[in-house]
Structures are given as structure tokens and as C-alpha cells.
Amino acid sequence: MRRSSYHGHKILKFIFIYFFVILLIASIIAPFFWLIVSSLANLKDLVAKPLHWIPRHLNLERYREIFFGQVGISFRYALRNSILVALLATGASFVLSLLAAYSLSRFPGKYRSNLLYVMLATYMMPPVAILLSLYIMLRQVHLVNTIWGLSIVYSSFLTPFLTWILKGFIDSIPKEIEEAATIDGASRILILLRIVIPVAVPGIIAAVLLGVLMSWDEFFYALIFTSTNQAITLPVAIAQFTKRHSIDYGMMAAGGVVAALPPIILAVLLQRYLIQGLTSGSVKG
């Protein structure tokens, strides 16, 4: 987009671009800055008026509490649970949706192709619409308050979503590369494993990343389905810094920083795949 170069407004454009770049950076950094400051400063300084942007006393007390203290016990369990649920739910839905996506992409029967929309329709379901029926079902099989139960529930909304992403991606892989193997008589599973998966790696990484982030973020199901240390996830643990009459903003901020780090690191590291996977995949509908 070098549209203005031939207008000869290079300097203007230069100023224009940098102005907005700085604005963009500031708008992203500022709330994060405040989150981190809130996790380090005394509450007294945070509620002062006029507000000092760099509080006088900074301490790591809350982080010590989270990682080693009494108050942090639930939080540490929640961290473990969140990791396990994210991996379990994403792992299970990944396998299911890869198979489904391959089937929908390579054998789009007349009626079957509509199944993608049926699946996507389930993704649109607001959680509250099925929450109680689900709770009763989980109770019957003794999966309330377990990471297994939560993972199964998460799979239900991850599977359609990942199927959609992966189907789009597999669509973009030319069929020809499988033909040789088909002639050789290799089974479809083998073709999927040996030929399709290696080519689909960017799409797979994007799908897995999205799955992990979505389960990491989920709050409502976790709030209702879990309450013990054995099963609560991070969003619930953070919400629990709300006491009966008070909210511990400092702890919430510290917990928030810790909870935000894993997905942020993942997103930054795997960003390239995310873009590749999402664009050559899902954009085809």
C-alpha cells in the first residue's frame, strides 16, 4: 500500500504512521501497566487521589502469597487444573475434529456437508441454555467437580469450532497429494496421519492454540461445575478473591498477571501459525 508515495507526501505519511503506531502501543500497554502496578503496590496508594502512577512502595508480597502462601493454595491447584483441562479438552476435541474435518473436506456428501452447519449451530448455543441439563447429566455420572467433567463439557464447544478451522485448512490442501497413496491402497487413517497431518501443521497448531486459549478463558461452566481445589480453574480462582463484602483487587491483579502469562506466551510464540492457520483455513467458510 504505497499509495501516497506518488503524491509526494512522504514526510506527512511518516508522521501520520508513527503517530498512530505510538497511539496503538500506548493503548495496549497502558491497561497492562496498570494491571502490573496494581499487583505490586499497596492498596492505599492505589486508591489515593491524586493518583501516583508509580507508587512509592512496590513489593512482591502478593506473588509470594500466590506461589508459596496459604491464600494461594487454591490458586496453585487452579493453575494445575487449568493446564490439565486445557490440554485434555483440546486434545480430545482435536482428535475428534480432525477426523470430522477430514471427512467433511474429502467426502462432502450431499447431506453431510450440512452437518458442519449443524455442528456450528451447537457452537452458537449460549451456555446458560444447556447448563442445568448438563449439570444433572454430569452429576449422574459423578463428574461434577472433576477436571474430566469440565474437559468433556469444553470438548462440546471446542469440537465444532476446531472442526470448522481444520476443515477450512484441509480444504486448502490439494487432494492430489493423497492420490498416490490412495492408489497404493493405504487406509484413510494412514493417509490422514502420514500425508495430511504433516502438511496441515500450521492449521493444527492454530486450532490447538485456539482450543487451549478458549478453555483457559472459560468462566461460566467452570463457575457452576467446579468448587473444590481438585477441579476449579483459574478464572474461578481469580473470581474467588472476591470476599463476602470486599474485593481483593491486588490479589486479583497478581492472579491475573500469572493467569495471563501462559496464554500470552503461547500466543506470541505461535502467532505465525495462528495467522496462517486461520487465514488459509477458516476464511473459506
Binding site: P31, L35, G256, A259
Partner: peptide, 26 residues
Amino acid sequence: TLVILPWALPTVVNAVLWRWIYNPTY
């Protein structure tokens, strides 16, 4: 890379953070 950071922030944290930022008295 920077631009992707907010997206990775959990919704619960985002909600609490902004409620804190919007607070009418402090």
C-alpha cells in the same frame, strides 16, 4: 506481536481490570 497481547488476557481478568480502571472514585 504486541497487538496480540490483550486477546490472550482471560476475560475474567479483563473485566476486573477495567472495572478497576473505570472506578468513579479512584
